[in-house]
Design a protein around this nucleic acid. Structure first.
Lengths: 204, 204
DNA sequence: AGGAATATCACTCAAAGGTGTGACATTCTC
DNA sequence: GAGAATGTCACACCTTTGAGTGATATTCCT
């Protein structure tokens, strides 16, 4: 028997998943959660074999919950479930220790298959997700400072604005952003904004 | 009996919706569709009372399908179903003649309620959606040309690039973008990019 | 027909952005 | 403890962007 917790903020999706997972009668959904904190609570209370964890959730999101949950239950098998295939989401999930990553628009059997594989101790990624992961892995990471600058840039601040907010010189702002642009392989800030949103580095 | 067609690209969501809609035994799901074209086909074949239409779908998306479907079946009641509350999606849906707009993260009862209301001939929007719609309605529309320029901007092109692509002068590009920025109420192109993505005017 | 909206272009000027190069202190890492 | 990475700043230089103003032809709407 595979004991599983579903964490997704959409009630409709939770119900759909319950239904889909009936394909394999060995899977038992022992609890549901609507955000990261509830997921943590559900894992604590039910000690499941697998956690099916959505990334985008209001309140505590799946990625930040993932860190905490794996810190407390290092051996728990977590299968990330997401609507998006944003590089950053995939990368951070796997780096954080998730055993798999499935995108919701896959056919139901894929999801059940992923649960089975992960339950059996394997990792699971579709080819597409694996490709994105491998691609992202070769990219240099932004430093926390650089990420901070990028986020302010996405919010529409000019270099001068940023220098004022962070109380550093405009030259420093430019230096950081130059590094950011190089790492992201873009030429202008407008392009950086679009890329940052696409990759999931910053939200619009 | 309320005869209904579900159009959503996620099989999991379709199943969840089927389940949720059982709350009202008068609702009968007569067909499912996974994209805009299938939705059109399903409507043609089953002539339902209501179409529950997702916006973001691969291939033909919900919005473009909506126009065509309402052109063929002007009296069909269409309830838009979306993950996002992007202004542009809401606005275009209602302007195109949808009878309601619900966001998927609502509680299941809300969705069923929306179906009931729309079936009864009323329109349905949550307060939040109505607020966004009213806000958007007051904004001036971008012309198709302006939108075209904005999209190229979002893709990271400079004014010079754009002038080359569209074979117009850089001055003209600037003139258009000045109008765009004014209409969007932003000061810089980076901000415009973020806003365009947020509002659903252009995708990243 | 007349007016509004749209699309086009020109010219100027100031502000912001981006490149290249160099430097220095701190912190992390092996 | 040496070396790499990070965060900070400076200066010079050029490019791009954005604001202001004005003008013309076309199209759309009434």
């Amino acid at each position: 028997m595979i004991r599983l917790v579903i964490a997704d903020d959409h009630a409709v999706v939770r119900m759909g998943l319950r239904f889909v997972l009936k394909i394999n009668p060995d899977i038992e959904v022992v609890a549901e959660a609507a955000d990261g904190d509830e997921a943590m609570k559900a894992v604590r209370e039910h000690n499941p074999d697998i956690l099916l964890l959505d990334i985008r959730m209001p309140g505590r999101d799946g990625l930040s919950a993932l860190d905490e949950i794996l810190a407390a239950f290092p051996k728990l098998k977590v299968l990330m479930l997401s609507t998006s295939d944003a590089e950053e989401d995939i990368f951070r999930s796997i780096e954080a220790g998730a055993r798999g990553y499935v995108v919701k628009d896959n056919r139901p059997e894929i999801i059940v298959d992923a649960v089975n594989k992960v339950a059996a101790g394997e990792t699971y990624m579709t080819d597409r997700v694996r490709r994105i992961y491998e691609m992202r892995k070769t990219l240099p990471d932004l430093t926390t400072r650089e990420l901070e600058l990028l986020r302010l840039t996405v919010r529409g601040l000019t270099n001068k604005d940023i220098s004022a907010v962070l109380e550093i010189s405009v030259d420093t702002v430019k230096a950081h952003l130059r590094h950011v642009f190089a790492k992201m392989d873009v030429a202008t800030r407008a392009e950086a904004v679009a890329e940052a949103i696409r990759r999931g580095l910053a939200s619009s």
